[in-house]
Amino acid sequence: MTLKSEDVLNIAHLARLHIDEDAIDQYTSDLSSILTLVDQMNQVDSSGVVPLANPLDATQRLRDDEVTEIDERDKFQQIAPDVEAGFYRVPKVIE
């Protein structure tokens, strides 16, 4: 599998990652070689095998519907980059 630099830029946009102009070629070649490695999976016929999402094949535990958390906003917002009046802030989003 070989990627083109436009592919890398499209994926980088989906992942919201800025990639420096001069690093694009390196990423393109690194990602292509990783995908070549990954393509080895196709050496095996796995048709009919039930996918395994979680190693233990267990089922979900459920919690009771109870409020267990208290307000810790001040503590949590101490580590935030931009807060005002209890809100987190980001550059204006235009819808």
Partner: peptide, 11 residues
């Protein structure tokens, strides 16, 4: 979007 002039506020 109308809480602050330059920013969007997140609750």
């Amino acid at each position: 979007h109308d809480q602050f002039p330059e920013q969007t506020a997140i609750d």
